[in-house]
Design a binder for these strands. Structure first.
Lengths: 226, 226
DNA sequence: TACCATTTGTCCGTATGTATC
DNA sequence: AGATACATACGGACAAATGGT
């Protein structure tokens, strides 16, 4: 019985969140909301905390609870971060998913990019090559390059997934796998990928993107013990 | 100050979870854990609820809190469910991601399936055809078919993502898009896909899987107003 | 500046339902 | 069946932050 009650409570709170998300108003005060739903403040707060973890609402002390467009990237990063810390072999699985997603959306990405996007990407690849020749890494440029690449596909779910991946990479303590064995080659691969995108050469673009991931897989196999 | 304290509390609980995840033991009782961390049971419970939403722990009444390998599917389903209800155009985006993932992993799936899996899939397709001829839907068989198809790839992250998708579909109230315009054709498409998988005919399998999704997209365009 | 009502954050005590031995 | 351990839920109280007067 308690299960169904708790389930109903979650559903009811979800209804309130959806309702307020449209108008942008804050949720009713905990006291009033709890009374309306026929539960104690404690029970209601636990449900709200759960939804907060899913990025549905935020609490501002002294102000109230506010619904917000859900972003699951943080929740994914948290959960999979623990998976990675307990099962190192999850890392290649993560790369496989990113690989499939990026290759799968590459053609759509190429068609939707605008001129300003392409200019930014060119600047980024130039900076990557410059840094590589100085022996420096370019993780931030790498991330921004891929973010822009898929930013115009109009798929906000894809954006959240890719964001979760990059957040995860930044959280990983063992950075050995991120260090490319050949920085210059990695940077030039991005430049070649950019040229293919610029000329809308889908086959070449796919090929260069694939090579980037095979390069990452090579690093992975080198630093990980299965 | 309260932010840093709450942040510390989350971090500390996270450490406990990671520690217990390795051994499989349950977490200390709320009372003792709260005392050890210097907080009240209420505050601790809210943090645990948040982690529960991210699939890190589960609570069994009368027994205790147990750490478990994180499953983010519920969190994704919750978050994206609200996105869907507020922005209907997210639904095709969701299908696009599922499409890219399934097609991208199809070859790997075909190579890793075992005999028992194939038998189950054959039974499922038979039941789908039988139901279709009686004018009945076969959502559960459909879901189970696709679940088995990718269950042997060894990618638990992929499993969680696909699980999130199916949970989402079941939560969607407007079922009009799920009603295939031609049940029999949809069922037979699954049968053809199964045959291609059985004979390890990658090209045909990919083609049939693509057709399934183009069928879904057709339904989507018909029932949705952009 | 100061004050004040509102709202969330936290804590405590108590009773109840459930699981485990 | 009984006893213990534990989570679930409730209500009250106070602290902390916010927003407005």
């Amino acid at each position: 019985m308690s299960e169904t009650q708790e389930f109903d409570l979650q559903q009811k709170v979800m209804e309130v969140i959806v309702e307020r998300l449209a108008t942008g108003e804050r949720l009713p005060p905990e006291k009033k909301l709890a009374a309306d739903l026929g539960v104690s403040r404690s029970a209601l707060r636990e449900v709200l905390r759960a939804f907060q973890a899913s990025g549905l609402v935020v609490a501002l002390q002294g102000s109230g609870w506010y619904a917000q467009p859900p972003d699951v990237s943080a929740s994914i990063a948290d959960g999979w971060n623990i998976l990675l810390r307990t099962q190192p072999n999850v890392l290649p699985q993560l790369m496989d998913i990113r690989y499939v997603l990026e290759v799968g959306f590459l053609e759509r990405a190429i068609e939707t990019l605008g001129i300003s996007d392409l200019q930014k990407m060119r600047d980024l690849t130039d900076r990557m090559v410059a840094k590589a020749r100085r022996g420096e890494e370019f993780v931030e440029e790498d991330r921004e390059f891929h973010r822009i690449l898929f930013s115009r596909t109009g798929n906000i779910l894809l954006e959240q997934l890719l964001k979760a991946f990059w957040d995860l990479f930044n959280q990983i303590e063992d950075l050995s796998f991120r260090r490319s064995s050949d920085l210059v080659r990695s940077a030039e691969l991005h430049q070649q990928l950019f040229q293919a995108i610029l000329t809308k050469d889908r086959e070449s673009a796919t090929r260069y993107l694939r090579e980037q991931f095979t390069d990452i897989r090579r690093r992975l196999d080198g630093s990980q013990t299965l």
